[in-house]
Amino acid sequence: MSAPILAVENLTLAFGGLNVLTDVSFAVQPGQIFAIIGPNGAGKTSILNCIGGFYRPRQGRVLFDGQDISRVAPDKRAALGLARTFQNIALFRGMTVLDNIKLGRHAHLRTGLLPALAYWGPAQREELELRREVEETIIDFLEIEHIRNQPVASLAYGLQKRVELARALAMRPKVLLMDEPVAGMNLEETEDMARFILDIKEERDITIVMIEHDMHMIMDISDHVVVMNFGQKIADGTPGEVQHHPEVIKAYLGEKQQR
């Protein structure tokens, strides 16, 4: 096994007296689609928040690309190559689709305050190059040409999710954290999204860490699954392995079978 691209070690997080995460560890290999599943309130989103830097865990470390990033500010983590999509869409509502996507590239652009005011020479070249690249590698890929100049607030839910993915791709991530990418989508939209996720993994060398409730999709596309319950990791393995893990059946899949 090669060195993990992302690992969390002994992550413990508490709000007041409430333990949200207890001693969670796992490692993500490069090129994987890595799924985190578990019932509501199991602490899945909190893990992503710790990896992204929005929460500071009480104990434990986050390792990214061999480097301990536990003390690194969220914006620096983004610059290192950690991108994120959100469970409740977090697009910038005052901007168009195109500007939202361009914003994703922020950390990789160089234009400073004064050149920006002048919009001259390098600043202009950088923007035009960004526009070309965003059009050719992201907008075409995600098939959102027709909405590029619309304000995001006017878009349908499924499209907003897609724009959010576009913005994350513009960040040139090494690891893409996706919080429920297909929640609330119909079957067709879900299949589109699954196809995009597989394409991203295969064509762009991006490792994907995803939280999802859609078990069909998890079983279909993920390489590795971690199961959470009450803030603790209860299983860790390939989809086939966790599916038959007794703890998992009891805690999570069991509920499904009873229906």
Partner: peptide
């Protein structure tokens, strides 16, 4: 001009959602 570049976009992002702006770098 500012709003044709990353600086202006960053301003608006901070206004709209400062937390996710930070997570965007």
């Amino acid at each position: 001009n500012l709003f044709r570049t990353r600086v202006g976009r960053a301003f608006i992002a901070i206004r709209d959602r400062d937390i996710s702006a930070q997570l965007m770098g």
